[in-house]
Simulated scan of single mutants.
Amino acid sequence: MRHGEVENPTGVLYGRLPGYHLSELGLRMADQVAEHLAGRDITHVVASPLERAQETATPIAKAHGLDLASDARLIEADNVFQGKTFGVGDGALRKVANWKHLTNPFRPSWGEPYVDIVVRMMQALDAARDRARGHEAVLVSHQLPIWTVRSYVERRRLWHDPRKRQCTLASLTSFTYRGDRIVSVGYSEPARDLVPAHLLAGAKPVKGQGKAFGA
């Protein structure tokens, strides 16, 4: 699960910075997803150590009478622009000081390598699978790590256009295992009615969504 909306009035790229909590809307998103999952056979809930992920996971754990676990492998991707405003149209690409960080979009040169994200996220997925074997687990993380590991599992290239990620606020990306192997991936948005319309605009269906990978 991706965390809910964050209180971020200055619009910075908050990354791994502490002190960024869910907004009132984000808390409502977390509650709505918890209600959506209330009837599921969930025996393990684990989240990134960042506040927004912990706050998103809390009502889910509470609804199932579980202690909330923390896993640093689920944390947001590292980024050199953390704490700054950096986005399309804000002039950041025209700042010479930023150019040295923008030389290789395939790695990427401005942050944690995609391959490193895949390794730690797969480790977190496998650990949760083992902890909840025969049942279900909920892991709360962040958009880029979730999208990167999904792209790896669905055999897509890891570098991509961030505007085309299918991983909106409070969405669920589901990995189904048979034994130790992922056999299918699904995606849903149980809090879609709460997500601001402009954030849903780019959430188009992805080829291979729900794809099964065999026995």
Rank of each mutant, 00 (worst) to 15 (best):
D31Y: 05
D31N: 14
Q32M: 14
A34D: 11
H36G: 08
A38I: 02
A38F: 04
D41Y: 08
D41V: 06
V45K: 07
V45T: 09
V46A: 13
A47M: 09
S48W: 07
P49Q: 10
P49V: 14
R52L: 04
P59W: 05
P59H: 01
I60Y: 00
A61N: 06
K62C: 01
A63Q: 09
H64Y: 01
L66E: 04
D67I: 08
S70A: 15
R73M: 07
L74S: 05
A77S: 15
D78R: 09
Q82V: 14
K84C: 11
F86N: 11
V88F: 11
R94W: 12
R94S: 11
A97D: 14
N98L: 05
W99K: 13
H101K: 03
L102Y: 07
L102M: 15
N104Y: 01
R107Q: 15
R107A: 15
S109Q: 03
S109C: 03
S109E: 01
W110N: 02
G111D: 00
V115G: 09
M121S: 03
M121C: 02
M122S: 13
M122V: 12
A124C: 06
A124P: 02
L125M: 08
A127I: 00
R131T: 12
R133Y: 14
V138M: 10
V140I: 12
H142W: 04
Q143C: 13
L144N: 07
